[in-house]
Write a protein that binds this DNA or RNA. Sequence first.
DNA 1: CGCAGAATTGATACATCTCAAGCTGGGTGG
DNA 2: CCACCCAGCTTGAGATGTATCAATTCTGCG
Lengths: 248, 248
Amino acid sequence: MFADHISQMPQECGNCPIRHTAVCARCNPDELEQLDRIKYNRSFQAGQTVIWSGDRMDFVGSVVSGIATLTQTMEDGRTQMVGLLLPSDFVGRPGRNEAAYNVIATSDLVMCCFRKRPFEQIIRDTPRISQRLLEMTLDELDAAREWMLVLGRKTAREKIASLLAIIARRSALADRAGPDGRTVFDLPLTREAMADYLGLTLETVSRQISALKRDGVISLHGKRHVTVPDFARLLNEAGDDVQTLMIQ
Amino acid sequence: MFADHISQMPQECGNCPIRHTAVCARCNPDELEQLDRIKYNRSFQAGQTVIWSGDRMDFVGSVVSGIATLTQTMEDGRTQMVGLLLPSDFVGRPGRNEAAYNVIATSDLVMCCFRKRPFEQIIRDTPRISQRLLEMTLDELDAAREWMLVLGRKTAREKIASLLAIIARRSALADRAGPDGRTVFDLPLTREAMADYLGLTLETVSRQISALKRDGVISLHGKRHVTVPDFARLLNEAGDDVQTLMIQ
DNA sequence: CGCAGAATTGATACATCTCAAGCTGGGTGG
DNA sequence: CCACCCAGCTTGAGATGTATCAATTCTGCG
């Protein structure tokens, strides 16, 4: 097969694309230097598994570029995605030795990894890092709770609309071009991955995307490139309170 | 109606039931003294709302005794529970001014509240507190992700079995009496609250509890007192990997 | 060109919801 | 002290949304 992973020389933090958004966002030069000493880059190809649930994990790290998913699996194969990792998102848990979830590269992926033991020591000594990690973890918890509402109470159509809205908002590619407020972005997930995100089957995902297209809520160019002519309408289809959400 | 809330004199931290499990768990006497200066107790009656989503929130705090729920609501009234708060659980988010969820007392409830501004200053200055908060937040995130698997991929019967197992494990009342390994505990939730936890209707909850009873997985004494003759069987009904989970 | 993975579409099955009717047990007031 | 009340719960019958099983149809790529 392919090389299990492809090590790369550490990059300069100075021109790192996630320098001001990742766990190191608020580090001063001295703290950055400390992290630099224990870091290394790893690259993965689309489809590769970064780590299996239950495996020993001797690093934590940040997604530098690309997309990965966090999934849980039941014995009979039912799969639920529990995290969607975009650049600057943090992977792994300080103080835990084994991975709790499968981490899979959905696209080609670059990660900035820190050796776990020294990283644990650094967060003990460096409040600016542990507080940034707390902030990021609280954000993830909020996102997880929003996701729980989607999983527990929304219809298939609302789920798809919610996912599209979430991806549009998180995706750096998304921008409202022109005064008409169209939103354009690429879907980073297959239909099956979307199904695992939303607790649906891939057939239901496909049908609901077709329905949203038929109803003019979205239009597709290819399978992955999405245009949303009216973002408020999409939020409305998601069952969200449009007033509250458009403000941000 | 009732008094909106009933203030009480702060209790001594020394004999506080959550002294060694809450956010203050690892404080030294000096740090405890700092927290003591900004804390106050509040009591709520069963059914009372602690705070509404969107309301200004000028405190954070810990559940001292009793049970509360965190819920999200859609405009049409659909409700999803996103947190179940037991003694020592933390409520509120440092750095946020408005509540993101409804917090409702399910039983009579006592909270140890900290004024938000000074608390935010203290966690900036006191690594032992912010690191304990990070640890608790990571635990909550893990619980939320487990819950997402339940919501997204489990059947109604598995959902009920999962909830019973979760409550049994978290409940202080639960104990394996005798060598036969029976587990006994009280349900702290109505059928409707269980439905909101699991993304079901209360009728489905009722039917599935009846089915588990009929099949001998559980027995009920009254509506709330549960006996589990064989905990491994309950975990099996929950769709969980029994090998992994019984070890803890 | 033709293959393989990804996606779409159709027909049917079934789990859960919805609507509706009773039941139960603990508290209250006559 | 008993009857009644009512929130919480159970059970039933039928409706419905999503899953399942099964063909096709795309699409990108060697």
